[in-house]
Design a protein around this nucleic acid. Sequence first.
DNA 1: TTTTATTTTTAGGTAAATCTAAAAATTATT
DNA 2: AATAATTTTTAGATTTACCTAAAAATAAAA
Lengths: 220, 220
Amino acid sequence: MQSYTEENYLKTIYHLAEKTINVQTNAIAEQMQTKPASVTDMIKKLADKGLIDYIKYQGVTLTETGKNTAIDIVRKHRLWEVFLVDKLNFKWDEVHDVAEELEHIKSIELIERLDEFLGFPKADPHGDPIPDKNGRFAKTQFIKLIELKVGDSGTITGVSQHSSPFLKHLEKLGLTLGKQIQVSDVTDFDGSVEIRLSDKQVNISREVAKHILISSNGKN
Amino acid sequence: MQSYTEENYLKTIYHLAEKTINVQTNAIAEQMQTKPASVTDMIKKLADKGLIDYIKYQGVTLTETGKNTAIDIVRKHRLWEVFLVDKLNFKWDEVHDVAEELEHIKSIELIERLDEFLGFPKADPHGDPIPDKNGRFAKTQFIKLIELKVGDSGTITGVSQHSSPFLKHLEKLGLTLGKQIQVSDVTDFDGSVEIRLSDKQVNISREVAKHILISSNGKN
DNA sequence: TTTTATTTTTAGGTAAATCTAAAAATTATT
DNA sequence: AATAATTTTTAGATTTACCTAAAAATAAAA
């Protein structure tokens, strides 16, 4: 059994490990809003518990057990987000903080029943995949909107940025999950992308386009 | 803002205060499964924060602020219990422990929306009243089943014992909330009570009868 | 009203998770 | 390869919520 704090460390390490193989002390500290010295203390503890492999000065990697634990927390987090949006009518930019708390409620039965109640969703309100109870992810085929060529079309199925301002911005533009889009133009000058929606045309910056994930319908 | 532990102390004191005016250190310790010395430490802290009034060796009482905080936790606890039973199909004897965790999730918005989602319930699965967001309880008119005379009838609207064995026992006998009952006999020998239900007749011990709450339809 | 029993508090200590400041190891730069 | 910069670790403290053991206050009994 892990403490609240240990769970948060594991989750953070898990997410950082998606970018780099060996996760560094400073990276964890920054993510957890704490000091490197505190991280060193905690990673020693997690290593003692067999949840991470740790070589001094070389960063850490999750063990099989550690990874499973982390995935379980991610699962809970995302299921709660679905609950908040689908059942309690929260907006997709409002759910993160509450889900951060809910993810630590430790009842397996609760999560299984919640999963069922929600209809076994495969993705959270931001399009992030929800692992099943065995920790397996449905494999998804995402492409960044920025990578589309003029004429390409697809469906918005995720975002790779979860900040409230970003999500509110998308909402305002009508760029929400499930929307069908087509790239109608790319501006040479600033790389901004013009997008055709069913009912309108919007222009988004390169920066925004980077963080929108599309499940492609292929070329036009 | 209170810590998880502080909230549990306040809740415990609140419940104990339903029985006695001044809540004693030992009573809190027993309820919280901790030692009196630890309780003394904590009640000093809560007194410093203005959540309880505390006179050394004389026990404690909740201040207005403390009481409001406690009621808010009770509200959350009971709303979550309704969620677990009504939406996730937990049995009434299975919800307590999970609700003990969920009650500490600190988002006002969450609870308001949950309340609405559940249809603003007035009582939890055990018949305990749920305070509204201003901390006000709908006043209820309960009488203990044990106090009914032969011939009296009423509706089961609550229980004053929440242990799983007790609740499972009632479930097996068909004595669940909302059931219409009539007392058909009281045994002189052991004080056990014979009860007529719509479809059957059951016999319950005095001890069980003490913990069933009836909203009376008056005498027969 | 002493004596005894119970309750409560104090004193001093522990474990978890944090911190600051300084030392050590690693990596990058000249 | 030596020096500088960065990263990481150690050492020593702090805070929260506990604990045990002993002292003090209160309540009950002789």
